[in-house]
Design a protein around this nucleic acid. Structure first.
Length: 580
RNA sequence: AGGGCGGUGGCCAAGCGGUAAGGCACAGGUCUUUGGAACCUGCAUGCGUAGGUUCGAAUCCUACCCGCCCUGCCA
């Protein structure tokens, strides 16, 4: 597997090179807490974190934030980090997801080495822990039905009341719990509960369920178990078993921390420290596995790796680099405050990366033919072109030029508005890396009026795009030699939702109704320069003056398929808007 | 008898009693063989509100307002 060290070294300023020096804050409340713990020699000065996904879906950009925080911090303090699958609910979990998660975490740039764990591998230990709590009279078997339990739990403002089964003897509880494990009772008929405080203002402390009877095969342990521990009875103990020092999680678990601590203290086992931070929210999309699952399963998108999805698999296919995602996560920072990050922030991160690294190439998405009347028929010249003006080491390549070329249809206007610097009748422009050309006339389709050919003349003395007489042209166009062009399909993506906050849009409205019907546009008649013929899937390019694109795995020997990762910033579009 | 956590520019986010960092966005400008990039400049007399303590408050105190999370045998 290939996940170079350098990939995972840019999580903090002090480890940054000029490669990605943004002005990311060097500190946050989690790092401060850890530094205090180190200073106080708590945990013997160790730092050991974990990322605990449930294998019930694909990872998304929100998980990337969590991974960058947990793993990035461990790296920065010379600590260790574990990948642990939190797989205590057999109903939702599948092996496919563990493979996908591992692939995505590696791709993101983190290597958990041999520290790959599964909470379900602790089931036996967890069972023993449960027995221990029963013996300490801190847990009991309860026969209440789910409905009854809800009633007994009370409400947000009213205390609950004790279960009638709360005072069973240790003996009876032991027998019953063993019976639960041995399959003597039907699903849902009994639970093992922690005996805490039914009047606690924290509902998590009102005798929470530790075990449920559930006859569902576990993807990893088959039918070995018919009782499964709940998250609350699994998570802290798993952290404890693994020697985790700092268990970093979502703020939604703040209310669970007293319970996390209660189990570990009652069990008298090693106790990590849980610290919570705010989850990521992004404009114009939805995050959260349940919602993404709906999009995938109801066919609103084409699978978990649909490039429109904020999943890591989708973003990878879209053309995002792992570096750009890590930088994004570092840039947005960490706090406990609710946040809604603008999607532009993510786009900035990928442009910033690709600008420095993506080879420039010429591609015409919506071609119109240009015929250079004074260029010799049949002649072909090879012209030198920079691969990347931002990177001197990127070198040059040769591109063919000939009498007939394609340019972008929108780069020509018969009746151009003010500030339109491109081709128009009588106007001279530069063909990038090639020659100055002047438009002489156009040929239109007799029926539709559509322009089918633009006739130009070129100035042979401007080879390479320079003139030595001081003459300047305002516009520079990209182009592709018609004879040499390679056909391609290009997929343009727009945001998946039309609302900035699809989940909060108007009360009572379903977020799904805000799906953008135009989130995918397929261009089937694109012309790209011949150097791209053998570009492998996932290779990334800047299509000059258009945007960043990557080769989609749908590409076949006779059809190139590109995904637009993100367009270039377009100040002409802004001017146009202003003119309207 | 509710509890927990938050509130610093349009969006994020530093700050931790000594006079509001930084990034994104936005607006001007320079440069340019990408209307890209880069570079320069501008952008909170203000930190939810009101009081109080202090020589000095975003930081401390009090009260209030607003937002989010919690009533699964999900995680």
């Amino acid at each position: 597997m290939n996940h170079p060290k350098s990939d995972s070294k840019n999580t903090k300023n002090k480890t940054n090179t000029q490669e990605n020096d943004n002005n990311t804050s060097d500190t946050n409340f989690i790092r401060q807490a850890i530094e205090e713990d180190i200073a106080a020699n708590r945990f013997d000065g160790r730092v050991h974190t974990r990322f605990p996904p449930e294998p019930s879906g694909y990872l998304h950009i929100g998980h990337a934030k969590a991974i960058c925080i947990s793993f990035g911090i461990a790296e920065d303090y010379g600590g260790l980090y574990n990948l642990r699958f939190d797989d205590s609910n057999p109903i939702t979990e599948e092996h496919e997801y563990v493979e996908a998660i591992k692939r995505d975490v590696h791709w993101l740039g983190f290597d958990w080495e041999e520290r790959e764990f599964y909470a379900s591998d602790y089931f036996e230990t967890l069972y023993e822990y449960a027995v221990k709590l029963i013996e300490k009279e801190k847990a009991y078997v309860c026969d209440l039905t789910p409905d009854e339990m809800r009633t007994y739990r009370g409400t947000l403002v009213a205390p609950g009341k004790d279960s009638p089964y709360r005072n069973r003897s240790v003996e009876e509880n032991l027998t019953l719990f063993n019976g639960m494990r041995n399959g003597e009772f039907p699903d849902g008929s009994r639970t093992l509960r922690a005996k805490i405080d039914m009047a606690s203002p924290n509902l998590n402390m009102r005798d929470p369920v530790m075990y449920r009877v559930l006859r569902a095969p576990h993807y990893r342990h088959g039918t070995n178990w018919c009782i499964y521990p709940t998250y609350d009875f699994t998570h802290g103990q798993s952290d404890s078993i693994e020697g985790v020092t700092h268990s970093l999680c979502d703020v939604q678990f703040e209310d669970h921390r007293p319970l996390y601590d209660w189990f570990l203290e009652s069990l008298e086992i090693y106790q990590p420290r849980q610290i919570e931070f705010a989850r990521l929210n992004l404009t114009y999309t939805v995050l959260g596995k349940r919602k993404l699952k709906v999009l995938v399963e109801e066919g609103h998108v084409n699978g978990w790796d649909d490039p429109r999805l904020p999943t890591l698999a989708g973003m990878r296919r879209r053309g995002y680099t792992s570096e750009s995602i890590q930088n994004f996560c570092n840039r947005i920072g960490v706090s406990k405050a609710d946040n809604l990050i603008e999607i532009g922030q993510l786009e900035y991160s990928i442009r910033d990366d690709l600008n420095r690294h993506a080879p420039r190439v010429m591609a015409v998405l919506n071609p119109v033919k240009v015929i250079i009347d004074n260029y010799p028929e049949g002649q072909v010249e090879m012209l030198d072109a920079d691969n990347n003006p931002e990177d001197k080491d990127a070198g040059t390549r040769e591109i063919p030029f000939s009498r007939e070329i394609y340019i972008e249809r929108e780069d020509f206007m018969e009746d151009p508005p003010r500030k339109f610097y491109r081709l128009a009748p009588g106007r001279e422009v530069r063909l990038k890396h090639a020659y100055y050309i002047t438009c002489e006339n156009v040929v239109k389709d007799a029926n539709t009026g559509e322009i089918v050919e633009i006739h130009c003349t070129y100035d042979p003395k401007t080879r390479g795009g320079w003139s030595d007489d001081g003459r300047r042209v305002q516009g520079t166009l990209h182009w592709v030699s018609a004879e040499h062009a390679v056909d391609a399909e290009v997929r343009l993506y727009d945001s998946l939702f039309t609302e900035r906050e699809p989940e909060n849009a108007a009360d009572g409205t379903d977020w799904i109704q805000f799906l953008n019907p135009d989130s995918l546009e397929i261009l089937g008649n694109c012309k790209v320069e011949p150097s791209l013929v053998d570009a492998p899937p996932e290779s990334r390019f800047q299509f000059l003056r258009i945007g960043y694109f990557c080769v989609d795995p749908d590409t076949t020997a006779d059809k190139l398929v590109f995904n637009r990762t993100v367009p270039l910033r377009d100040s002409w579009a802004k001017i146009q808007k202003g003119q309207k």
